[in-house]
Design a protein around this nucleic acid. Structure first.
Length: 572
RNA sequence: GAUUCCGUAGCUCAGCCGGUAGAGCAACGGCCUUUUAAGCCGUGGGUCCUGGGUUCGAAUCCCAGCGGGAUCACCA
């Protein structure tokens, strides 16, 4: 492992600390009796409560001024300034703790615990006057230093790749990131509370499924050794939750991690979260009202208002939301009434509107494409779109009065679907026919069409009550509720392409060439990291590089002759 | 998958009509007991993503690769 100068420096400090009898990673607990937030919120009202505080956190900044210093201590809730005076933390003759430990051996990033009292400095900042200081964990890596003045951020740690790959660093140096994930959890908690309070049962259903269903998407495939069978990571949990409705639970929901083997983008991660809800004896009209109420409730819980800034827009979740049928929406945005068109007419219309079409598309898919292309992106404020073509919705009940449509709605916010729901199809014979129609689409080349699930049909044949079902994309909703530009910003650990790691040659690979061990680190430092690299080297250059480095590092090993180096190359 | 832009010190970036590297912060040494993007003086630190090409000479120009961003396409 190659260490840079500052990393070597910190490892040296670590050894120095041990020599002084200080354990850089002590085992015992450190008593914490306050948080930085509590101090900042309550000190002015009741300063007497903060005469003996004990607090722990990470050093984020240091300003050393001779016999006194200021430091920034960051805990989970925020940060506070420490005032550390030499003669306060070292009351006796021995000033080592201040002069050596604090000033020389501690670094930004170290985790410490301090005790003392809270006061205000001359410049008015609430600070802790430190009386005792203890190292709790030495940091060996250099943090990016983000500074801020008058709301302006300097040297921000903003490279998305680094932020996503090393989320822990992102969380340390970017406070607003922490805020986003707190909001996300609050959002899920609010929804859970909303649903539980209505008496619906939160359940867990299989993630590993022998058949994938309940949505149109390509799955991830895996294998169970003992059963010697293929299993799929679920793309949805719908069919399992409906089995539970058959079983007599009248309201069930699950926050479900689903997996879809599709492209990745700022709206798509291979694994994502949905909440699905099924309620017996209800229909999609009823469900629309629930969605409005729940999302409005979430907004109020998170922001104390229904108006939320998202990018350029202010989105208002106040009920009631606008409602359009799909045909009405298309007519509104294109001026074309497609409600009575044949498949040929739809293809022609789609092409006129600049919508791409291909052979595999049925009538429903064509309508859906036209909608997606011409309407969806324009729906910024929360809007319900109802009554979808039957071909696109094999699990939804036929519309009670409109031929060729189903009782389905989607909720669209900021140009993206956040919820999808329908009156669930409970006619087992109709359901079987719909699955078979999907199989036909599959033969036409639509590789996202659904497969036939016999056991699910078996459940329906026992009789499922009329049921309303709902799915809400948690990540999408979290993006809106936290004003995040991409899904990666609301996932703690978004999927990333793995870093290519060079396989490292072992010590033996080098010693086998007759190279003595003390030269190996120097070889690696100069980029000769494998026997192959040595084989293609020129003896004079290699010798020069190594002896140069030896001199620069003032190493007390004998210099190399060209013959020695040539011998390595010949062997390699 | 397509288009496009980017890859220089631990971090943020400058240098790019060719002459082998700079700034601020961070680090190191020194001064400083209420400062705050602390300050002042001094020092060290770089396979300029990788590989090839053009050239007397490449961080800079050309080609290929790797990695990443953005936009678009498919899926939630």
């Amino acid at each position: 492992m190659q260490l840079n100068d500052q990393e070597i420096q910190r490892r040296n400090s670590l050894q120095e600390l041990r020599k002084l009898g200080i354990d850089p990673y002590p085992a015992e607990l450190f008593p914490v009796n306050v948080t930085t937030r509590k101090i900042k919120e309550e000190f002015d009202a009741s300063p007497e409560k903060f005469k003996e505080v004990s607090i722990a956190g990470r050093i984020m900044n240091r300003r050393i001024m001779g016999k006194a210093s200021f430091a920034e201590l960051q805990d989970e809730t925020g940060s506070i300034q420490l005032y550390i005076a030499r003669d306060n933390i070292c009351p006796g003759e021995d000033k080592t703790l201040y002069n050596t430990v604090f000033k020389k051996l501690l670094d930004i990033g170290d985790i410490i615990g301090v005790s003392g009292y809270v006061f205000r400095t001359k410049t008015g900042e609430i600070s802790i006057h430190v009386e005792t200081l203890k190292l709790l964990s030495k940091s060996l890596k250099v943090l990016p230093i983000v500074k801020e003045k008058d709301g302006k951020v300097y040297d921000s740690f903003s490279d998305p790749e680094l932020r996503y790959r090393q989320r822990y660093v992102d969380l340390i140096v970017n406070p607003q990131v922490k805020e986003t994930f707190i909001k996300r959890t609050q959002m899920v908690n609010a929804m859970r509370h909303f649903l539980s309070a209505r008496g619906y049962l939160e359940v867990e259903t299989p993630i590993l499924q022998p058949l994938y269903g309940g949505a149109s998407a390509r799955p991830f495939k895996t294998h169970h050794n003992t059963l010697d069978m293929t299993l799929y990571l679920r793309i949805a949990n719908e069919l399992y939750l409906k089995r539970l409705i058959v079983g007599g639970f009248d309201g069930v929901f699950e926050f479900s991690k689903d997996f879809r083997n599709e492209g990745m983008s700022r709206f798509h991660n291979p694994e994502f979260t949905q909440v699905e809800l099924y309620v017996a004896y209800k229909d999609y009209e009823w469900m629309m009202n629930l969605v409005e109420e729940m999302v409005e409730y979430v907004a109020l819980q998170l922001h104390n208002t229904t108006k939320i800034p998202v990018g350029e827009h202010i989105i208002d979740f106040k009920r009631p939301w606008k409602r359009y049928t799909m045909y009405e929406a298309i007519q509104e945005y294109t001026g074309i009434d497609i409600s009575n068109m044949t498949e040929e007419e739809l293809v022609k219309t789609a092409e006129e509107l600049g919508v791409k079409v291909d052979e595999s598309m049925g009538k429903g898919k064509l309508i859906d494409e036209i909608f997606g292309e011409t309407v969806e992106g324009n729906l910024i404020q929360p809007t319900f779109i109802t009554d979808y073509p039957i071909e696109m919705s094999p699990l939804a009940k036929k519309h009670r009065s409109k031929e060729g449509l189903v009782e389905r709605f989607e909720a669209i916010v900021n140009g993206k679907e956040i919820a999808n729901a329908f009156s669930e199809l409970n006619d087992p014979i109709d359901q079987r026919e719909r699955f078979e129609a999907q199989l036909e689409l599959g033969k036409r080349g639509d590789d996202e069409s659904m497969v036939l699930d016999e056991d699910f049909l078996n459940a329906l044949e026992y009789g499922m009550p009329p049921t309303a079902g709902l799915g809400i994309g948690i990540d999408r909703l979290a993006m809106i509720m936290t004003n995040s530009h991409s899904i990666q910003d609301v996932l703690l650990f978004p999927q990333m392409r793995p870093l290519k790691k060079k396989k490292e040659a072992s010590i033996e690979d080098f010693t086998a060439l007759g190279i003595s061990p003390e030269w190996i680190p120097l070889l690696k430092e100069k980029g000769y990291d494998s026997p192959e690299a040595i084989r293609s080297a020129k003896a004079s250059k290699l010798r020069n590089d190594l002896n140069g480095l030896r001199k620069k590092k003032k190493l007390k090993i004998p210099a190399l002759s060209e013959e020695e180096v040539q011998a390595w190359i010949d062997k390699a």
